[in-house]
């Protein structure tokens, strides 16, 4: 009764990963958008025809996050039973 359910330790760790990933996502999105996008329009470069700040922040950012989600789920997430009856590691 004193001991924390082993599944909760996993759940807590994965929730922390979720928060970190969201923070990383925000920093990437914000950094490229306002870091590069605040230059005068004449200085923009274009990647595949899109303004560079947009390409790096939204297109590349989306691809990076998708890859990270795949990697994280495959390597850091553990499968656990949800029902209490199967309650053994």
């Amino acid at each position: 009764m004193e001991e924390t359910d082993w599944r909760f330790k996993i759940a807590h760790r994965e929730a922390k990963i979720g928060v970190s990933l969201a923070l990383f996502n925000f920093v990437w999105w914000f950094g490229f958008a306002y870091g590069m996008g605040s230059r005068p329009v004449e200085e923009y470069n274009y990647v595949f025809g899109l303004p560079d700040w947009f390409f790096y922040s939204c297109v590349l950012g989306f691809l990076v996050i998708s890859v990270l989600v795949v990697v994280i789920v495959h390597f850091f997430f553990t499968e656990v039973p949800f029902d209490d009856e199967e309650d053994s590691p």
């Binding site: 599944r7 807590h12 979720g18 989600v69 949800f82």
Partner: peptide
């Protein structure tokens, strides 16, 4: 984009259990 993973990672397994 964040909603795609955030909701399930945060509520996640603990909510399901």
């Amino acid at each position: 984009v964040v909603t795609g993973y955030f909701v399930l990672m945060i509520l996640g397994k603990k909510y399901a259990i």
